[in-house]
Amino acid sequence: MDTAHSASAGTEEPRRRGGKRVMRRAPSASMADVARLAGVSSQTVSRVSNGYAGVNEETRQQVLAAMKELGYRPNSAARALKRGEFRTIGVITFNLSTTGNMRTLEAIATSAAHEGYAVTLLPVAVPTQDEVRGAFSRLGELAVDAVIAIMEVHLLDAATISLPPHVQVVVADSDAGDRYSVVDTDQNGGARAAVRHLLDLGHRTVWHLAGPEESFAAQRRADAWRAELTDAGCPLPPVVRGDWSAESGYRVGLELAQQADCTAVFAANDQMALGLLRALHERGRRIPEDVSVIGFDDIPEAGSFLPPLTTVHQDFAEVGRLCVQGVLGRMRDRGDEHGTTLVPTELVVRDSTAAPALVVGE
């Protein structure tokens, strides 16, 4: 290969600066370089680069080999301008430590890849209005076609957030259906089914280990717990609150273990239920003989808890798929209508719930 060709391939050339020998990186290979090396037209290189049909396999392999030899990387920005899209979806979220957010993000990335789209993650370090506005403003610099936001509704004030032109938005885990398209699991139905299951077993009432106050999901589940008990004419115990972590469930569990009339607990997620199980066990409260415990999420480890945890299953894969399908549909149809799509939940009964050994007061 001659010197000029080597320079086009992105090799480094020696030169001197201040008496020292330094290396200078030559310009990157161009589409024309690839075409010359492969002995084809630039149009053929473009078709191979973009994955279009109509190129025989031998020629395609020849072009790919030339790309590899020259270190050629297609100019995604130029292709985006030509197509009118970047084939990238931005995802804005905070609190990546929670099971729900991580599994939703994983499902979005998987579904986007299946559709031929990449995902650009824009984490919000602190859940404030200014941070969310900053994340949305960065979208104009990161070249995305659409946005999926996994965050609380009170941080999505349409009056203070400026979206880049033509960027479509779908929100997960929110009730902003009058301003954005929303995809969520049936929080209300799942929580009510959990409480109803415990009441049907014969428990006089159900205590609730709620998530943090600022969480939309925690609010929905607490409201459903309260409504189900009210409809059944059952006493309403005071809400005890954690922060989604197993540690917070353990701390609350130490307190609940002292409540003699606590025979059933609905935890707003499985991680807090795990900590609760440990605390009750350490205080000598048998599960489910003395206290029944039910969670929410159905994390992969839920069946391996001791005892295996009764919980509410959320279909995170379906949430992610519908979020991606939602933004792609809005991109293609340019629809203006907003609404909420609910993904059904399912009660999974395992060994952590049973009829109370003794109904207090009888």
Rank of each mutant, 00 (worst) to 15 (best):
M1Y: 04
A9Y: 03
G10P: 11
P14Y: 08
P14C: 07
R17V: 12
R21I: 06
V22E: 13
P27H: 12
P27N: 06
A32R: 11
D33Y: 07
D33I: 15
A35W: 14
R36E: 15
A38E: 11
G39T: 11
V40K: 13
V40F: 14
S41I: 02
T44P: 08
R47Q: 13
S49E: 11
N50F: 09
Y52G: 14
V55S: 12
E57L: 10
Q61L: 15
V63M: 07
V63R: 01
N75Y: 02
S76Y: 06
L81N: 03
L81G: 05
F86E: 02
T93E: 13
F94T: 14
N101T: 15
M102H: 11
E106A: 12
E106I: 01
A107C: 10
S111H: 13
A112F: 03
L121I: 06
D130E: 13
V132E: 00
V132A: 00
G134Y: 10
R138V: 14
L139Y: 00
L142C: 09
L142G: 03
V144G: 00
D145R: 01
A146K: 01
I148W: 13
I148V: 10
E152H: 14
V153Y: 13
H154M: 06
L155H: 02
D157Y: 04
A158T: 04
A159T: 15
L163N: 10
P164G: 09
P165Y: 05
V169G: 01
V171S: 01
D173Y: 13
S174N: 07
D175F: 07
G177M: 05
R179W: 07
D186G: 02
G190A: 12
G190I: 04
A191P: 00
A191L: 03
R192H: 09
A193G: 08
H197K: 05
H197M: 12
L198N: 01
L198R: 03
D200N: 07
L201M: 07
W207K: 07
G211L: 07
G211Q: 08
E214K: 03
F216G: 04
A224W: 07
W225R: 08
R226W: 07
G233D: 04
P235T: 08
P235H: 12
L236W: 06
L236Y: 09
P238T: 11
V240L: 12
V240C: 10
G242Y: 10
D243V: 01
W244D: 02
S245H: 06
S245Y: 02
E247S: 13
S248G: 12
V252E: 11
V252D: 06
G253E: 07
L254R: 15
L256Q: 07
A257P: 03
A257W: 06
Q259M: 09
A267N: 07
A268E: 04
M272R: 01
A273G: 02
G275Q: 00
L276K: 00
R278W: 13
A279W: 05
A279T: 00
L280D: 00
H281G: 09
H281Y: 13
E282L: 08
G284M: 05
R286T: 15
S292I: 00
F296C: 04
E301D: 10
F305V: 12
F305E: 03
L309T: 03
L309A: 05
D315Y: 05
V319Q: 12
C323D: 01
G326W: 01
D333N: 06
G335Y: 00
G335S: 12
P344F: 05
V348Y: 00
V349P: 00
V349R: 03
V349Q: 02
T353Y: 04
A354E: 03
P356C: 14
E362M: 11
